[in-house]
Design a protein around this nucleic acid. Structure first.
Lengths: 338, 338
DNA sequence: TTGAAAGCGCTAACAA
DNA sequence: TTGTTAGCGCTTTCAA
């Protein structure tokens, strides 16, 4: 008169009882473990279906895998992210992993708290996209869970994997394309940064820009203009920039985040693009591709990025120990903005 | 020689030992439970800080709260979502709740699987944004976890809460604004739907459109054009639409998802907007606000939506049992597209 | 006010 | 091949 009292939740025990086997047997079937007869498997499967049983991730997390992967985003605003996350999700889903997303608000301590919290719920792996936290901190987390990082060049890391676009090459290609068109006074538009440089994607792009300028003997024209990222701060800065007397003939923008508002502001001021101003940007997000915008941009191939990161995580989960660092070639999508 | 062997993980036991108290005492301090002396609390807090202890969410999930809330999105692509999720996150964060996001890929069974999986990890509450699953299914889930739904009008639901923009009013306001400008032959652009209608936001907007047309004696002009949502299918359909002989003088678009590509396509065809064509859309996302686009659009006030939903969930978690259905007024953002 | 102890639902030795 | 059982780290009665 005590056992059948709480018929409420279907647990592994309910299934075992229904199938007339032990809980261990059910657990084994669940995990596809070695050494289960087909008949046992059949019985258990039937009961599972009949009872609508689903293992508790929380309980699983206490002993084994949760079959859940966490993804940490800087923010949700960047239209570059959706296709990346989508391809990652799909690849992980094929192998039976769920994907849960946390948003770091571009603040270091929010990011860390989120990673902690994901580890606390015993996720099996972690994908970090453009994290703000440093390599040393990443090492710390990598000791607790397999990690793959996108958007932070750290190809000497030993404890975690990275997938990146060759941003040096991307920055150079964009700049070279502008030079080839005849522009000489080419500036780069980049974000205002607080401290770190090494490994940042924008820093690699800066290096690529400088390299191209130097190779063309244009180092005297080299300059980087730094613009805020918050829309309300960015707008007036862009306008000031366009009104300056010594305005450059062309801009290479580190991201569509700045590139799209810039081409907008410039056209609204009556500048012909190309003609009065040449523009190439980075990320090739949807707005850049809108016909009315028509902004040439470096494509990072987000689908491949997501796929690669998923492969890295999956092979880590299968036991790989040595680090893997994948690099993908970017591609300039030509549009009539330069 | 067995106890101190695994010094690896800091658990509640480690803390208890360090503070010289029982595990129960630590647990009580953790949960701010009733009946703990200040001195005990102090000791425990000191040890927690010293050891850098964090409770395991997985273990917590087996008995009590996980202090984690799940958010289910249809997809990540809609730029309408980021501000909404951000304000929700912030409101929940203030009360000590973590927010984890799942993406449903706009497919019913993916959505259900995701909800199941979130429930399996014992999240404390669930925010569903524009879910594809039906009210009956929602009732089922609402029995297991507090649920708040945004973007699905279901104001008679008893088991879960809803927060919505008054989409009928929004659809009517947009249509009325077009009528007031002198347009008479006004069509509505909506998405292709598979089956369900009731409760869908677009259906409410359709009703608002029809109401405004009828009130103005224009019901003979009323018609709804249905366009696919996938970019590659959408584009040719929009072009065909604009080339039709009997093309309407103006469109009310159910969403910027269609509105932004439409104003692009129209301008690229050489149509003056306004002049040859009037356009009002819905969601007021970033692209609509770009000067080069300049698309008038109904603002849903995503920040307030997120805040409201958070309040609902929080009060549910504090014990509220009867359903709450919040409605927010939309606002037409006027731009020179009509 | 504090602590001992019984689980929560699962996994993984180990035994049968 | 199958089952028994000892935990995983926490919460929560119930006693002290």
């Amino acid at each position: 008169m005590d056992k059948p009292a709480r018929a409420s939740r279907v647990t592994i025990r309910t299934v075992a009882a229904d199938a007339g086997v032990s809980v261990a047997a059910v657990s084994k079937v669940l995990r596809n473990a070695y050494g289960v007869s087909d008949s046992l498997k059949q019985k258990v499967m039937t009961s599972i279906d009949k009872l609508g049983y689903r293992p508790s991730t929380a309980a699983r997390g206490m002993r084994g895998r949760t079959f859940t992967i966490g993804v940490l985003l800087v923010g949700m605003d960047n239209p570059f992210l959706p296709p990346l996350v989508s391809s990652f999700k799909q690849a992980m889903g094929k192998e039976g992993y769920n994907t849960l997303i946390g948003v770091g608000e571009a603040r270091t301590h929010v990011e860390s708290a989120l990673i902690d919290s994901m580890i606390d719920m015993r996720i099996d792996g972690l994908l970090l996209i453009a994290p703000r936290i440093s390599g040393a901190t990443l090492d710390h987390y990598a000791g607790q869970v397999p990690i793959s990082v996108i958007g932070h060049h750290e190809n000497t890391a030993k404890t975690f994997d990275t997938t990146n676009v060759d941003d040096f090459s991307g920055g150079r290609a964009a700049t070279e394309a502008l030079i080839k068109k005849g522009y000489r006074d080419i500036a780069m538009l980049c974000l205002k940064h607080s401290k770190r440089r090494d490994g940042e994607v924008w820093y690699e792009r800066e290096r690529g820009y400088h390299a191209a300028m130097q190779e063309a003997g244009l180092e005297n024209f080299s300059r980087i203009v730094r613009i805020a990222e918050r829309p309300d701060e960015m707008q007036p800065q862009l306008l000031t920039l366009l009104e300056e007397p010594g305005r450059p003939e062309a801009f290479f923008c580190w991201s569509d985040i700045h590139g799209v508002p810039l081409i907008n502001a410039a056209r609204m001021k009556g500048l012909r693009i190309p003609g009065d101003l040449g523009l190439i940007s980075y990320d090739n997000t949807a707005p850049a591709g809108l016909p009315l915008i028509g902004l040439a941009s470096i494509d990072q191939n987000p689908t491949i990025l997501g796929q690669c990161a998923a492969d890295q995580l999956l092979s880590r989960l299968k036991g790989r120990a040595e680090a893997s660092h994948a690099v993908i070639e970017p591609e300039l999508i030509i549009r009539k903005s330069f």
